[in-house]
């Protein structure tokens, strides 16, 4: 029983990790008023270029850098389109997701050839001395790849930035009241740009986690909707860092259950467990879990004097 629980906690964390990284990044951008449907595409791009970088250089850390760099490039174009060109953020996002799926599949076939699943240098797992011996959660929490510890630090940093710094205040201002923010001298465009870039960096970490830290290879469409799940987590979490992280863990647990329940002899349809995160998010957007308060200017481009 204890072992089962430990495995469950470990796989929940493993499945929730990319969601937490991507969702906390996306949160910043949405608080600033920009919705990145392209999150999925950013993660997939990052997963591919992370794997490519790690494979080409033989150094997984350089792979992570490649992943973040690639996701930042996508984020920069997304920011330019949605902030400067005031394009429809949803349409641009869908376009990026199609493009990312096509481009990564194409490049993978060209570079790695056919369907070979080349193993890439992955990140080592680091055990935290002392804590690893804790019962239940010891091995689950404290024998993870570096990116997990680093990721948690980044998430804390995001929470702190959003809630405790003047930049965080600016982000929330341009997402709720861009006009007033503009009058108060806050650079709306620059703030939104930065927020989208933060999303890109975090999506890059999420993609790197999937290909370099978790699976140790790239497969076509390997994010498989994780980006959309992260978007759902932001909604379910009511645009609040703590609740979004909790939503990611919940979604991770629901996905982990599909492997655990059959092992425990409990028969719940896999499809239902896979569906659960989306159903929960639907209930959340319908206001069933309490009134949601999205940023007022979410998806609305800002243009001075209009």
């Amino acid at each position: 029983m204890e072992e089962t629980l430990a495995i469950f906690i470990a796989s929940t964390l493993r499945l929730a990790m990319p969601l937490m990284l991507a969702a906390s990044g996306e949160l910043v951008s949405e608080r600033a008023g920009v919705l990145n449907l392209s999150l999925e595409g950013m993660m997939l791009t990052a997963a591919f270029f992370g794997a490519l970088g790690s494979w080409a250089t033989g150094n997984p850390y350089l792979g992570v850098a490649c992943a973040v760099g690639a996701a930042l490039c996508v984020a920069a174009v997304q920011a330019w389109l949605s902030v400067n060109l005031r394009a429809n953020q949803l349409v641009v996002g869908i376009g990026f997701n199609i493009l990312a799926l096509g481009a990564t599949t194409l490049l993978y076939r060209i570079i790695f050839g056919g369907l070979s699943r080349e193993e890439i240098p992955g990140l080592p797992k680091l055990a935290v001395p002392g804590l690893i011996d804790l019962p239940f959660a010891g091995t689950a929490f404290f024998q993870q790849s570096v990116i997990v510890y680093f990721g948690f630090a980044l998430i804390l940093l995001i929470w702190w930035t959003l809630n405790q710094t003047s930049f965080g205040l600016a982000v929330r201002a341009v997402g709720d009241e861009p006009r007033s923010a503009d009058k108060a001298g806050i650079p709306v465009a620059r703030t939104r740009w930065l927020a989208v870039l933060i999303t890109g960096a975090m999506a890059g970490m999420a993609g790197a986690f999937i290909s370099i830290a978790d699976i140790h290879t790239f497969t076509e469409n390997m994010t498989n909707g994780a980006g959309y799940l992260a978007l759902a987590a932001v909604i379910f979490g009511g645009w609040n860092v703590g609740r979004t992280i909790a939503a990611c863990l919940l979604f991770g647990a629901a996905t982990a259950l599909q492997f655990q329940l059959p092992a425990m002899g409990i028969n719940v349809p896999t499809a239902f467990l896979l569906m659960l995160p989306y159903l929960l998010a639907l209930l959340a957007v319908a206001g069933v879990v309490g009134r949601l308060d999205p940023p007022t200017a979410l998806t609305l481009p800002f243009q001075r004097g209009k």
């Binding site: 005031r86 429809n88 641009v92 376009g95 493009l99 799926l101 096509g102 481009a103 194409l106 076939r109």
Partner: peptide, 22 residues
Amino acid sequence: VPSALTLVIQGLIVIAVAGSVI
């Protein structure tokens, strides 16, 4: 030639059209 190429073309079209609305 991987058929993913058509996805690339399609994605580029969507992004270009969305970006040119302004």
